[in-house]
C-alpha cells in the first residue's frame, strides 16, 4: 500500500484515492488560442517517466481534494505532496 500524505487528512492508504494521472499536463488556458495540436498533446501525450512523476490523486473516499504528488514510478516512493497549485520538490 502506498501511503499518500494528503495535505488535509494526513497519510492515507492509496486505496482511498483515485489516480488522476500526469500533473504536468496543463490544459490549454485560452481555448481560442489553442491549436488542434495543443489539444492533441494535452489529451493524448504523456512523458511517462521512469522515476519521479508529478501526478494527481483524488481523495475520493476522503476529503475529495485533488492532491498533487511527486512519486517515483520505479519504487512507488512518494517524494512530496501538496495542493494542485503547489510546486513540489522531492523531500517535501
Amino acid at each position: 500500500m502506498i501511503r499518500i500524505p494528503c495535505p488535509h487528512c494526513g497519510p492515507r492508504d492509496h486505496a482511498e484515492f483515485s489516480y488522476a494521472g500526469d500533473a504536468t499536463k496543463i490544459r490549454p488556458a485560452d481555448p481560442d488560442a489553442a491549436t488542434a495540436a495543443d489539444w492533441h498533446d494535452y489529451v493524448y501525450f504523456r512523458d511517462n517517466p521512469r522515476g519521479p512523476h508529478m501526478e494527481y490523486w483524488h481523495h475520493t473516499q476522503g476529503c475529495r481534494a485533488y492532491v498533487k504528488v511527486l512519486r517515483d514510478t520505479s519504487t512507488h516512493e512518494v517524494l512530496a505532496a501538496g495542493m494542485p497549485g503547489d510546486t513540489l520538490e522531492a523531500g517535501r
Partner: peptide
C-alpha cells in the same frame, strides 16, 4: 462529480 471537482480544483481554480 469527480470530474466537476477536477475542473474546479485543478483546471479552473
Amino acid at each position: 462529480l469527480a470530474d466537476l471537482e477536477w475542473y474546479l480544483q485543478v483546471v479552473w481554480p
